[in-house]
Design a protein around this nucleic acid. Sequence first.
RNA 1: CGGGGUGUAGCUCAGUAUGGUUAGAGUACCUGGUUUGGGACCAGGGGGCCGAAGGUUCGAGUCCUUUCACCCCGACCA
Length: 434
Amino acid sequence: MRRSRAFIPTTKEVPADATLPSHQFLVRAGFINSQGAGLYNFLPLGKIVLEKIRTIVKEELDRAGCNEVQLSFVTPMSLWERSGRCETMGKEMLRIKDRHENSFVLSPTNEEAMVELVKNRVTSYKDLPINLYQINTKFRDEARPRYGLLRGREFLMKDGYSFHASEDDMIREFHLMQDTYKKIFTRLGLDFRVVEADSGAIGGSGSREFHVLADSGEDTLVVCQSCEYGANIETLYEDEQKIDELQEKSYEDLQTQSIEERCSCGAKLSFKKGIEVGHIFQLGTKYSEALDANFNDENGRAKPFEMATFGIGVSRLIAAVIEQNHDENGCIWTKSTTPYMVNILVSNIKDEAQVEAGEELYSKLVDSGVEVMIDDRKERFGFKMKDAELIGFVYTIIIGKELSNGLVEIYDRKTKVKTSVEVSDVFAKIMELI
RNA sequence: CGGGGUGUAGCUCAGUAUGGUUAGAGUACCUGGUUUGGGACCAGGGGGCCGAAGGUUCGAGUCCUUUCACCCCGACCA
């Protein structure tokens, strides 16, 4: 893509309504813009990142044997009346009426719809297990949306539901999904923890949350410094005052807090702040019983499905990546989430040799399938450099002054190190890095 | 949903206390020139139903009433 033709409205000014780094930088760098409380537009850069995350989620789930579907976003009210969640979810469900005065709900989650989909279509134990998911828009009319993409009202979420003939098989799937989620967050390049969690209102027994570690996290976790153990403090302490005290501390302050208890593995425990990006539950038969969704077992007896449910906040992940990876100059994308891997910065557009070298490299990278941007705007070096840092391209190739000596530079956004490279070697060098 | 706050140029904000020429600044944008390795400089220019509706007044961005939107603290939050 040519920067001169791209729609990337960057700005020096910090938007007044943004408090978190991810919110400020994503707006300033032109990834998203606010369309109303908790509503966001995804501009070209934001859309690219969203699709990249969606693709990784899909690839790993498909590999684990899940089936992708897409349910209607507008759902009949009757679906929610049958499960009783019409009342329990209250005002969080946005209700609308069509021209015939029929009531509908914008999907906040899809347990009911998924059960209805499977009910009477999967009727034998021989057809089980089955795992269905979708990556689709959700709407929750939150009392107070905030923190940009971290808590929007409209957001993109992957929600999955599995159906089983026995509890054992459901628990097997639960562990498979736990492993699959680890693969997904590892591929995204995130520092995360899997923690024991409160099952909350959705019900069910086993429950695990996946948290991206970041200072701005809303949850406080206790994690082992050696093994994989972790837990949300809400599940560990009954003393609400102690929970509140810990919640108020920053990520840095928490590190210095002492913990008397030790992990069962013997190693020390410590506190961290986390952003919840995934949650998996063992549901049991709660929804299948409520909605009368049964299958026939080996003896021809009708039994309710054993179920589990699995969620990933896809749009929230965009913000989480930046909460964990940014500095005072802007975004620092991971290799698997960056909107463009390489940005070619032509320092002086009036210098024909620089333009020529930039264009040649651009063509070669495009032909090699590399996601590359060329900054061909008539702007000064400093302006373009600040812009590149704000957006957060993983690598920026600076074609400037040193070109007359046969040299260009590769700027690494994360380390901020500039490396001089022979212009004849830069293509090979960048192909090696990415 | 309780408490607090803010709506004026694309963006960040002055101006409102005490009503009074043609509503301002910075930034962004357009034109011309200079400049070209860290968000340049000079000159010129365009851009506003002062959130909306109603009211008081000779006169309202400013005062009154109503309403909408957005932000912050809290409660809530798969």
